[in-house]
Design a protein around this nucleic acid. Sequence first.
DNA 1: TATGTCGCCATACATTTGTATGGTAAATGT
DNA 2: ACATTTACCATACAAATGTATGGCGACATA
Lengths: 207, 207
Amino acid sequence: MAKELTATQQKILEFIINYRADHGMPPTLAEIAGNFGYKNRATVQQHLQALEKKGYIKRNSRVARGIELTVEDKYFVSRPVLGEVAAGNPLTIYPDAIDSIELPTIAHTPRDSFLLRVKGDSLKDAYVFSGDIVIVNPNILPVNGHFVVAILDDAAVVKRFFKKESVIELHSENPEYQPIVLKHGYENFKIVGVVIGVYRSMDKIAG
Amino acid sequence: MAKELTATQQKILEFIINYRADHGMPPTLAEIAGNFGYKNRATVQQHLQALEKKGYIKRNSRVARGIELTVEDKYFVSRPVLGEVAAGNPLTIYPDAIDSIELPTIAHTPRDSFLLRVKGDSLKDAYVFSGDIVIVNPNILPVNGHFVVAILDDAAVVKRFFKKESVIELHSENPEYQPIVLKHGYENFKIVGVVIGVYRSMDKIAG
DNA sequence: TATGTCGCCATACATTTGTATGGTAAATGT
DNA sequence: ACATTTACCATACAAATGTATGGCGACATA
């Protein structure tokens, strides 16, 4: 059923998929052309016609960005995982992506949030397990009870946030771990962001 | 910081958010106008200018669908949950959406997949708990070990799928539940789709 | 009464976008 | 040697899209 693609067609298809993941919408012909250095939209048009003929995309006539992916769900979108974050004891954070996860297209992460893979079991009572992906948004102000990712002495942790009068407390859900208590203004501490959700791909289990 | 919106501006902002969730991209001015019965794009343009002035959106000049939501992460997107699905014993499936879940800008579910809320604990050994949202894709052929949603005698269940020579077995991860064994061709049975992921919003816990 | 805001319309225009046609060059196959 | 496929270009055009300007009626308010 799935006909063979030429190398160029493959690249363009991948670009469309990635553009969609990044921008939340398909690219225009001009944007595709620009990305590949084409001086002409007609070139892109021809490749898109080939892709449609082979069944990889569907096009809406005369609609701006009217490219639909028909293979969307086989072609999962690859998103970078920026590091591992300890739910138990702190782990070193990595500067670059350590891995990428195949998120289904449901997972159009907002531009300002990012993914971290959880390691450790200190959140098991919140049903977050080692290997799960947490979606972290750095532009939300944490309120008490939020799960936050924090940098603490050059390591990253996921903990539950409680701000009290003169201290900030970081709790684990797992009672085996003691809360971390921080005075306001402690230097080697920074809130990275608030955990807005947890995602787990089921293929890992099925495999 | 967030200035007041007029009723019309509010409606248009909501439309943009919903359109984006449904189509994976922002609408054009013409599409907004069409939705509200405006005979004119200039009307929409004026409202968008007001929305931008008040800081709710950002616009990319002369770019098709160049509307960015700046309030995206406060304004979580509402997606329909089509029913509840029993992880333990079967539950009746509902014809319409029973609820909606606030998904973070993880907004764009692929058009052909849908969400179900899990009820029951038969999948707890797979770390899926009551209240979690499973993302179901009906266009994937299940292979052994996949978690599937199936209709069985007018009720929906989530089970692990194993196809054997002459029977199909549906397993729970929880050993308290016995596997369901079905002969090929059993009438009141239908695979609805494959569970491709699990999502849990953290706000529920924080609240 | 005068002034301003809000919501909408009509018209007009430049740019963007999708589309079609024809042409060139390289690689491949027969 | 010839035809085919692939990949690109140039040009052209219609439709879609974003944008600007001015006008009209309803409503509130100073």
